[in-house]
Every structure is written in C-alpha cells, then in structure tokens.
C-alpha cells in the first residue's frame, strides 16, 4: 500500500491514547488534528517551515487512527469524547459516594427519610470526589437574582441569554443561574491493562 508500514493495533492504541490527552490539553495540537480531519496539512503553511521536522511528523501520525477522512469536503467536525475519562469519573463517584448503587436502586418503595439518609452518603462522597478531581467555580460571581450587565463581545459559551433576547449588547437582565466552570481536571492515571469498564468489582468475602 504505502511506503511506510501501517502501525499495528498496539501502536495505534498507544497513539490514540497519547493523542487523546494531547488533543484535550494542547490547543495547538488540537488545531492540527482539526486541520488533518479537514484534509489539510497538519501545520498551517506559514509556520510549517519554522517548526522542527520531528514535531511535524508527530502531528502526521494521528492520520493512521482516522482512516475515514474524506478530503476536500467541508463538513462539521464533531469531537468524540474518549470513554476512559468518563468511566474513571463514574468509578470515582461510586468508590467515594456509592453513586451507581444509588442510581441503580429502585427507590419507589422507600420513604423520603430513608432516601434522604442514603443521599447523605452519596452527597458527602461525591462532593469530596468532585472537589478533589474536578474543582468547580461559578462562572458569574454575582448573587443569583441580582441585575447583571452583559457587555458587548461576551463569550456565548460562558453566558447564555434567555427570554426576551432582542437588540444589541450590552444586555441587562437577572442572573438566573450562576453557571459552573471546572477549574482543573485532575483524574488519576491508569496502569496498562486496567479495565475501566469495571466501575466497581464484585466483592466476595472469604
């Protein structure tokens, strides 16, 4: 087929893994991936000659991972989230706060007091897990219900305008929800061969 042999599954797995995190945390790299998926060279023309070759090669590699790229067709690129981080978070919430146990139990027959008691375990544990691994802060620091003014050029991903949305910025309105923003993602690293789909192993007391 091509001059260089195609990478084997293991190589692809490692590559996908490395590319996943780099895409998540390295905006430059992510931009390169997007350009690749659009069928363009990984590096924008103007910087290509300045960049060391090694780097360019690295950016070329994810191509093997995405064989379905159809060149020269403008299409909307959707990002796909890797399953591992989500599974890890679920395992964390289960370990610290019995989250899956709580959701999977049929609560219809229990009194609110019983559900409330169990909810404390879930609340305490999940809150600890979230605060430790995905510390959050409100997007807006004002009190909910207070008047806020949204200046021109605001970031629409951070502030959603609702209701009577007409006219030009600045907009004034009431803060209905402060919003949440994850300050930092600190998920544990995983050893090779760890099966993340096992959110909680069965336990057998011998």
């Amino acid at each position: 087929m091509s001059e260089t042999p195609l990478p084997g599954f293991f190589t692809r797995f490692l590559l996908a893994w490395a590319a996943y995190f780099r895409t998540l945390f390295d905006a430059q790299f992510a931009a390169g991936v997007i350009r690749l998926r659009e069928g363009k060279p990984a590096l924008p023309e103007e910087t290509k000659k300045d960049e060391p070759k090694k780097n360019a090669k690295k950016l070329d590699e994810p191509k093997a991972e995405e064989p379905k790229v159809e060149p020269k067709k403008k299409e909307v690129v959707l990002r796909e989230a890797g399953p591992d981080a989500a599974l890890q978070l679920l395992a964390l919430l289960q370990r610290e706060g019995r989250f899956v146990d709580f959701l999977e139990e049929d609560v219809a027959s229990f009194s609110d007091a019983q559900i409330g008691a169990a909810a404390r375990v879930v609340h305490d544990g999940c809150r600890k897990a979230i605060r430790e691994h995905l510390p959050l802060e409100p997007v807006r620091s004002e009190d909910e219900g207070s008047k806020v003014k949204i200046e021109k050029g605001f970031d629409a991903s951070k502030v959603r305008l609702t209701g009577n949305v007409t006219g030009e910025a600045p907009f004034t309105g009431t803060l209905a929800h402060r919003g949440w923003k994850v300050k930092e993602v600190k998920l544990p690293k995983m050893t090779e061969g760890h099966d993340a789909t096992i959110v909680a192993p069965a336990e057998v007391e011998v």
């Binding site: 709580f102 139990e105 007091a113 019983q114 008691a117 404390r120 375990v121 336990e203």
Partner: peptide, 18 residues
C-alpha cells in the same frame, strides 16, 4: 450531625442505617 452507615451490598437506600 447525622451518621449514616451504608450497607456493604449494592442496596444502598434499603440497607443503610441512620
């Protein structure tokens, strides 16, 4: 302060002691 002792099994709501 409430003290809740969860069950070890997966039936969290039914088995927890408060």
């Amino acid at each position: 302060a409430p003290i809740v002792v969860p069950t070890r099994g997966s039936k969290l709501v039914g088995g927890s002691l408060r």
